[in-house]
C-alpha cells in the first residue's frame, strides 16, 4: 500500500498536520505582500482558512480575538499562533519571517528615500484605489464569517453590540470585551446535556 505518502494542502476540513517551514514562510509572505492596500486580517483568513485549510473558521476567529487581546501587533501575533500550531517554535519563527521580511525591505527602501531625498514616495494614487478594495475584502470577511456563526438571536445581539461600541462609538477593545466577553462565554459554555426546547 502506498497511501502513506500524503499530499499536503487541500485535505478536507482543518488539518493540523506537518507543514514545511518554507510553505509557512511563503504563505505569510503572500499574506503580507497581498495586503498592500490593508486588510491583513481578511488576507490571513483568505490564505489560512480558505486556501490552505490550516484552520476552521471557528478556530481562526477565536485566534484572531485572542491575538488582539494579547499585547503585540495583531498580525504578528496571529503569525506566531498559526505558525506554532502547524510546526511548533520553528513554525512560529518561519511565519514571522515570512510576514515581515519583504515588508521590512520595502519600508526600509522607502525610509532610505525619505531620509536621503526628503520626500514621501508618491504612491498615494495607487494606494487610494487599493485601500478601497482592501476595505471591501474586510467587509466580505465579516459577511462570509457572519453567515456561518450568526444563527440565532444571541449571536446577533453580541455581534451588533460590539460593532456599535467598538466601531461606531469607538470604545477601546478592552472595555468592550470586559462588558461582552462574560456574556458570550456564558452563552458559548458547553452544556452537559442538550436542553429540550
Amino acid at each position: 500500500m502506498s497511501e502513506s505518502a500524503t499530499v499536503q494542502g487541500s485535505g478536507g476540513g482543518a488539518t493540523g498536520g506537518k507543514v514545511s517551514l518554507l510553505t509557512l514562510a511563503l504563505a505569510f509572505n503572500h499574506i503580507a505582500v497581498a495586503s498592500f492596500g490593508g486588510g491583513l486580517s481578511a488576507w490571513s483568513r483568505e490564505v489560512v482558512v480558505v486556501q490552505k485549510k490550516w484552520m476552521t473558521d471557528e478556530e481562526f476567529l477565536s485566534a484572531v480575538t485572542m491575538c488582539r487581546i494579547l499585547p503585540g501587533a495583531n498580525q504578528v501575533n496571529l503569525a506566531v499562533f498559526v505558525g506554532n500550531k502547524m510546526a511548533g517554535v520553528p513554525g512560529a519563527l518561519a511565519a514571522i519571517v515570512g510576514l515581515t521580511f519583504v515588508p521590512v525591505l520595502i519600508v526600509l527602501a522607502m525610509g532610505y528615500g525619505y531620509f536621503t531625498f526628503h520626500h514621501v514616495p508618491a504612491l498615494q494614487d495607487i494606494l487610494r484605489g487599493a485601500a478601497a478594495a482592501a476595505v471591501a475584502l474586510t467587509f466580505a470577511m465579516a459577511i462570509k464569517t457572519g453567515k456561518k456563526c450568526l444563527g440565532g438571536p444571541m449571536p446577533v445581539v453580541l455581534f451588533a453590540a460590539i460593532f456599535l461600541l467598538n466601531g461606531v462609538l469607538r470604545w477601546h477593545l478592552l472595555p468592550c470585551l470586559a462588558l461582552l466577553a462574560p456574556v458570550s462565554l456564558l452563552w458559548g459554555w458547553p452544556r452537559g446535556q442538550k436542553r429540550k426546547s
Partner: peptide
Amino acid sequence: KAVEKGFAPLTVGLVLASA
C-alpha cells in the same frame, strides 16, 4: 469550547467595526 463558540460573533462584530 466556550471561547471558540462565544467569541465568534464578537470577532465578526470587531471585523465589521474595523471595516
